[in-house]
């Protein structure tokens, strides 16, 4: 599968990675090469094979419904690039 420049822009937009026009052709080539390499998977017949998402051996474990965390807004906000009082601040979002 090769990736054209439109696709590169589409993916970059989904991933919120800003690209310059100069970035696009090179990325299209690189991504196409990687996908070309990956395409050898299609040689394999995997019909009926159950996908394996994780090698973890245990079953999911849960917690009890008790409050054990939070209450440290200062720590949560300490690394914020921009904040206003107790809020994170970002460029205005228009809905």
């Amino acid at each position: 599968m090769s990736v054209d420049e439109n696709m590169v822009r589409r993916i970059a937009n989904l991933a919120r990675i800003g690209l310059t026009d100069d970035d696009v052709p090179g990325l299209a080539k690189e991504l196409s090469a990687i996908l070309g390499f990956v395409d050898q998977l299609s040689e394999l017949d995997t019909q009926g094979v159950k996908p394996l998402t994780s090698a973890a051996e245990d079953k999911i474990r849960g917690r009890d419904d008790v409050v054990t965390d939070g209450g440290y807004a200062e720590d949560v906000l300490a690394n914020a690039p921009e904040k206003d009082d107790e809020y994170f601040a970002v460029p205005k979002v228009v809905e």
Partner: peptide, 17 residues
């Protein structure tokens, strides 16, 4: 938004990008 190096943008999506 919550940590790390932010770049300015004209709007929120541009800030992300």
């Amino acid at each position: 938004v919550r940590y790390g190096a932010r770049q300015d943008g004209v709007d929120i999506d541009d800030m992300y990008a």
